[in-house]
C-alpha cells in the first residue's frame, strides 16, 4: 500500500521494451480515480501516448484523452523542446513573437542542439510549471502529473538539470530556471518509478539506475515489474520438472484420453520439454525478483497480456495497480 496523494509529479522510466509508456498511462488512469485530474506527459516526441489511446497525434496543448472510474479525468500533453523554448521566451522575456521568428530561422533548434542540457531543462520545466499551476480558485490545476520519461540509462541525467545547466551557465536566467525545476524534482512532491521485466539486463539497469538516482539525490518511488506471467505450475509440479521425475507415459496417456489426437509419446515429449523451458524461465525470474526485492522499495507487479495492450487493457492494468494498493 502506498499513499501518493501528496506526490504531485510521477516520473516513469524503464528499460526500452519494458513498457514504460503503458505503465505511465495505466498509472495516470489509476491516480485519476474518484474525481482526480491527472496530466499524462510525453517528452520524447514518439507519440506513444496517442498510439496507446488510439487518438490522433497529440499537439503541444493539453487535451482530455480518457476518463477514470468515479469521474476522474486523464489529460495528455506531448511536450516539444522547441515549443517549450518559445513558451519560455514568451513568459520570461516577453519575446513571444521573436521566439516564433527565431523558430522559423531554425535558431531554436540550433540552441537546443548546442546545449542538450537546455532541452532537458525545458522539458522538465514544463512539467514543473504544470505541477505548480493553480486554478482561479487557487487549487492545483492537476492533482498529479505523470511523465513518460526517457529510459533508465538516461533518467538521472535527464532529471539532474542543475548539474547539466551548471556546465553551461553558472549564473543567469536559465540557471535560475533550472534551480526552480530542481526545487520541484528533488522534493518529496516527486517520485521516480522504474519499469522492468524479470530478466537479467533490465533488472541490472534498474539497479544501476536507482543508484544513479540516489547519487543525484533524486526521490525514488517504486519499481514496476511488468509483463509478469501467471505461474501455471505449482511448486510440487515445478519440483518434478527440475528433478526430471515427470511421469512421461502417464502424461501422454492422459492427454490423449482427454482428446489430443497425436501419438502419446510425441505429446508427452513435447509437453515435458515445454515444461522444462517454462521452469527454467520461472527460476530465472525468481532470481531476478529476489534482486528487485533487495532494493527495499515498493514493488508492483503487472501481468503479461498475451493479446497486447489496447485501451481496455490499460483500464485493467490501472485496476491491478489499485488492487495492489496504489492510492
Amino acid at each position: 500500500m502506498v499513499n501518493w496523494s501528496g506526490t504531485a509529479l510521477h516520473v516513469v522510466s524503464g528499460k526500452g521494451g519494458a513498457g514504460k509508456t503503458t505503465v505511465a498511462a495505466a498509472l495516470a488512469i489509476c491516480l485519476a480515480r474518484d474525481g482526480k485530474r491527472v496530466l499524462l506527459m510525453e517528452v520524447e516526441g514518439r507519440q506513444g501516448i496517442a498510439q496507446l489511446f488510439d487518438t490522433p497525434p497529440l499537439p503541444y496543448q493539453e487535451r482530455r484523452i480518457a476518463i477514470a472510474p468515479g469521474d476522474g479525468e486523464v489529460w495528455a500533453l506531448a511536450v516539444d523542446a522547441d515549443e517549450a523554448l518559445v513558451d519560455y521566451l514568451a513568459s520570461f522575456y516577453n519575446l513571444g513573437r521573436a521566439g516564433s521568428a527565431m523558430r522559423k530561422m531554425g535558431a531554436i533548434d540550433f540552441a537546443t542542439t548546442l546545449a542538450p542540457g537546455l532541452r532537458d531543462v525545458l522539458l522538465t520545466g514544463k512539467a514543473c510549471e504544470v505541477v505548480r499551476r493553480k486554478t482561479k480558485r487557487a487549487s492545483n490545476a492537476y492533482d498529479h502529473v505523470v511523465i513518460d520519461a526517457p529510459p533508465t540509462g538516461r533518467i538521472a541525467q535527464f532529471l539532474n538539470v542543475t548539474a547539466q545547466v551548471s556546465a553551461l551557465a553558472k549564473t543567469g536566467p536559465i540557471h535560475r530556471h533550472a534551480e526552480m525545476v530542481m526545487g520541484v524534482i528533488a522534493s518529496p512532491q516527486t517520485a521516480v518509478h522504474l519499469v522492468t521485466l524479470l530478466e537479467e539486463m533490465p533488472v541490472q539497469e534498474t539497479i544501476d539506475g536507482i543508484s544513479e538516482l540516489h547519487v543525484a539525490n533524486l526521490p525514488v518511488g517504486a519499481v514496476f515489474v511488468n509483463m509478469m506471467r501467471t505461474p501455471l505450475l505449482d511448486e510440487r509440479q515445478s519440483a518434478k520438472v527440475r528433478k526430471a521425475t515427470l511421469p512421461k507415459s502417464k502424461i501422454g496417456e492422459l492427454a490423449v484420453a482427454a482428446g489430443i489426437r497425436q501419438p502419446a509419446r510425441d505429446v508427452a515429449e513435447g509437453l515435458v520439454q515445454e515444461a522444462i523451458d517454462h521452469v527454467r524461465r520461472t527460476d530465472l525470474e525468481a532470481r531476478e525478483q529476489a534482486r528487485i526485492d533487495d532494493l527495499q522499495l515498493p514493488v508492483f507487479t503487472l501481468p503479461y497480456l498475451a493479446q497486447g495492450v489496447a485501451l481496455g487493457e490499460l483500464y485493467a492494468l490501472a485496476e491491478t495497480m489499485f488492487d495492489e494498493g496504489i492510492r
Binding site: 501455471l232 505450475l233 502424461i251 492422459l254 513435447g270 509437453l271 515444461a275 517454462h278
Partner: peptide
C-alpha cells in the same frame, strides 16, 4: 496426475497464443 497434465496443456495453450 490429471491436474498436472491439465497444467501442462494450459502452458502449451499459453505459448501457442
Amino acid at each position: 496426475n490429471s491436474r498436472l497434465v491439465s497444467a501442462l496443456l494450459q502452458l502449451h495453450a499459453d505459448r501457442a497464443s
